[in-house]
Design a protein around this nucleic acid. Sequence first.
DNA 1: CTGAATCCTTTACGATACTG
DNA 2: CAGTATCGTAAAGGATTCAG
Lengths: 122, 122
Amino acid sequence: MVPNNKQILLGANCPMRQMLDLVGDKWTPPVLYLLSSGTKRYTDFQRRIPGISKKMLTQTLRRLESAGVVNRTVYPIVPPKVEYNLTPFGEKLIEPIAGLAEWAWQNQEELKLIYERQKLKV
Amino acid sequence: MVPNNKQILLGANCPMRQMLDLVGDKWTPPVLYLLSSGTKRYTDFQRRIPGISKKMLTQTLRRLESAGVVNRTVYPIVPPKVEYNLTPFGEKLIEPIAGLAEWAWQNQEELKLIYERQKLKV
DNA sequence: CTGAATCCTTTACGATACTG
DNA sequence: CAGTATCGTAAAGGATTCAG
């Protein structure tokens, strides 16, 4: 499916680069992966993704919204209630992300070893 | 395979986070993906990945080497010749990366639209 | 050809305080 | 509850020069 693996250029206008611009930062994959199990609220993300700050969470969600990956639904009540879920495009997009997560869980032993070793290097 | 998708935490010691620490930067995916089609030399990367600087290329390759993902072979000749290829672990690791690339090529139209739209936003 | 070394800019990210 | 605004630091990345 990838045209001529032997000769393609992986530059700025290549699909892979654009894909990485969309999902290749620190928090987007966890956020999307969490959404793959259904609609989530703001606090759900904060609880399930330890370490993410409000700033980064909001920034990530808004960017994904403007990219057409997630829907944001505001309920005009107090206290506020806001729900996030995947758009149809988002549902497709999380497939390769889920693939990454799957692989990570299956190979967590080796990943852990590498992780620990790299940490010491600093 | 992923344990209880409904309740896992995606924090610092979760496999997905460690996976992203390993492959989740700007140049690692293209570099690995290129290596999936066989042994490459330093200049091969420079030609096939437009935009990458020598600094980042070297840094990425050395990190992957120390992580046990790629082998680096130096031929003691002049001019120098250095070859890079995937270790057995690297061969496994590129599977989900290839999945990402596959998806990107299959959905390149939508990705392109998003990419162009986001660019204008700035 | 394959880097190393340096300097510099930009971006990402985190911490904190405040708000309807 | 779900943010916004601001500030500051740290990390990432790029450009350039030099070298075996």
